[in-house]
Write a protein that binds this DNA or RNA. Structure first.
Length: 564
RNA sequence: CGGAACGUGGCUCAGCCCGGUAGAGCACUUGCUUGGGGUGCAAGGGGUCGCGGGUUCAAAUCCCGCCGUUCCGACCA
């Protein structure tokens, strides 16, 4: 492509609305323009990179016997009502005029097709995938393409006859995903993840570490333990027993509201303070006991309770039910509350908690003797520097961008949409499903996050829109024009994707800056300096290394450098 | 959904507090100039100051409402 004819609107200044580097560079390098919040127009240059990423996705999905579909983005609303997902908050965008919804993912359509045509165990297993635009009702799009309302996703779905076979489909996806991200040149890691509202029995995320990531992850510094903070656990020490045998007694704690105030007022260790958190679970009162300065992890709580709605109490209601205000609530003598506790408190005694009477607390509480606990669960949020459960080394809390997510769905959608097959014994069984997704724009944005410098993007060879960027220093010099044109032609004929900066009356400095901003792996500079010695110059974008080669050897040398 | 900020030529922003002829740089057009790291000079074109209402002799500027965008938080299959 000749730059004199190309539409690549580069910008010198950083657009005000972009705050993270990949977003800034994608705008400055003329890759995309924002239409409205969370919705972008992809311009020709980035679309080439996206097509390359999509090709890699296709090849690796085909390699695990995936079959490519193209499913409708517009779905009947009724289909989503059937699976109960129509009214998940902030999920679906809809077309009111026709009772249609814009599909945010495609489990429903896949299950609909499967319900018609999967009849026998002989029809299984299947892996179906597509690369398609998705729509989500994001309340707050942000970080450029990292969280948008419209984006392209490779989504695949496995259909299996048994849980063992689902494990195989899931594993082959995990392996394919590793190959995909490796081929895209991304430094990634995998974490155990929460299945969330997707439903299902297991899930794993593929992440890129980034301070701009929205996910918080826990990584072991030594072993390969890695988990999303939502489910991460650490070697948290049990509180244990001390001062056995003392009876519960009330202590006056005037104006003490918070755990920190309580600790300093009583000169007590935080570990001896059992903090009471009150919620309504499915409308019923729930009291959660946690060690003083541990943080409740709401994702773990939801999982421990087996789902349902969790909401805080309304003002005043608490007083009626407990006889006290927040800050003085405790597990003893509390009626009509279900009480659960964090595992660290299991079997502990010598604890201090609220007395259900304002300005009073109780001491010498023994969990076994005094509290009717309906289950101990791991409910705490892992903190940076805690010990790894697997190897005992220090854990690091970090941030990540989610590139891909794989789920074992099980039978949720099969049951809702009646996807069944007959097994060898003629018995009717639900199909076991898995679902797997990769965000195409995220591949691009993550690559740019990981591969850039103060001058611009540094594309790797796998994703680069063009492999080579030829720069004619001046179009007023006949030798340069002749040589650069011939070189452009030879490279193009050799099948090397080449961008040729043949713009007249653009100064060399301007062309260099643009070339660095656009970031193709190799820059080939044709100028008077080199031509004097019958040479041209090759610059590697990544390292800045410059190589002078004879004009005639240039195509071969470029080919060789691209093959490295 | 809670909190905050912003909205002025294509882009980055000034002007607003203290009302009185809409500005700069970049980009664009034309001419000359320059030609290995965003050349220099000159002349030009381009803006209902987000929208609506109000106050006023007079509103980009003050007041009210709405819309949009961004950031923090909540949420995130």
């Amino acid at each position: 492509m000749r730059l004199s004819k190309a539409f690549i609107p580069t910008q010198k200044e950083t657009p005000a609305d972009a705050t993270i580097p990949s977003h800034q560079l994608m705008l400055r390098a003329g890759l995309m323009r924002q239409l409205t919040a969370g919705i972008y127009a992809y311009l020709p240059l980035v679309y080439r990179a996206m097509l390359k990423a999509m090709n890699i996705l296709r090849e690796e999905m085909n390699a695990i016997d995936g079959q490519e579909f193209f499913l409708p983005a517009l779905n009947p609303e009724a289909l989503w009502i059937q699976t109960g997902r129509r009214h998940i908050p902030n999920f679906i965008l809809s077309i009111k005029e026709r009772d249609l919804v814009l599909a945010p993912t495609h489990e429903e359509v896949i299950a609909w097709i499967a319900s018609m045509h999967i009849q026998s165990y002989k029809d299984l297993p299947q892996i179906w995938y597509q690369i398609q635009t998705k729509f989500r009702n994001e309340p707050r799009p942000r970080s450029g393409v990292l969280r948008g309302r419209q984006f392209i996703m490779k989504d695949s779905y496995s259909l299996d006859r048994s849980w063992e076979d689902l494990d195989k489909s899931y594993e082959s996806h995990a392996e394919a995903y590793r190959k995909i991200f490796t081929r895209c040149g991304l430094k990634f890691f995998e974490v155990k993840a929460s299945s969330g509202a997707m439903g299902g029995t297991g899930s794993q995320e593929f992440m890129v570490e980034s301070e701009f990531g929205e996910d918080t992850v826990v990584l072991c510094q030594k072993c390969d333990y890695a988990a999303n903070l939502e489910i991460a656990s650490s070697k948290a020490m049990p509180v244990g027993r001390s001062n056995d045998g003392k009876t519960v007694e009330e202590i006056h704690t005037p104006n003490v509201k918070t755990i920190d105030e309580l600790a300093s007022f009583l000169k007590a260790d935080h570990v001896r303070l059992a903090k009471s958190l009150v919620y309504k679970h499915n409308g019923k009162p729930l009291l959660i006991l946690m060690v003083g300065n541990d943080q409740l992890n709401e994702a773990k709580l939801t999982a421990s309770l087996g789902g349902g709605t969790i909401e805080p109490f309304e003002a005043g209601q608490l007083q009626t039910l407990t006889g006290a205000d927040g800050g003085s609530i405790g597990p003893i003598g509390l009626k009509s509350f279900r009480i659960i506790a964090d595992k660290r408190l299991e079997g502990a005694n010598d604890l201090i908690s609220g007395a259900n009477r304002n300005d009073y607390h109780l001491r010498n509480i023994d969990m076994q003797r005094d509290v009717k606990v309906d289950g101990y669960f791991d409910l705490r949020t892992v903190e940076d520097g805690e010990d790894c459960t697997a190897c005992g080394s220090k854990l690091k809390v970090s941030h990540g961008i989610e590139l891909g997510h794989i789920f074992k769905l099980g039978t949720k959608y099969a049951e809702a949409l009646n996807v069944t097959f007959l097994d060898e014994n003629g018995e009717k069984k639900p199909v076991i499903m898995g679902s797997y997704g990769i965000g195409v724009e995220r591949i691009i944005a993550c690559h740019i996050e990981q591969s850039r410098d103060e001058h611009g993007i540094i594309w790797n060879k796998a994703l680069a829109p063009y492999a080579v960027h030829v720069i004619a220093i001046s179009m007023n010099n006949k030798d340069i024009v002749l040589t650069s044109n011939q070189l452009y032609q030879k490279l193009t004929e050799a099948g090397i994707e080449t961008l040729f900066d043949d713009r007249p009356n653009v100064t060399p400095g301007f062309k260099f800056k643009d070339a660095d901003l656009l970031g193709m792996p190799l820059q080939v500079i044709v100028g008077e300096k080199g031509l004097k010695n019958h040479q041209i110059e090759i610059k590697k974008r990544k390292t800045g290394e410059r190589i002078m080669v004879g004009i005639d050897e240039a195509p071969a040398k470029i080919k060789q450098l691209l093959a490295e």
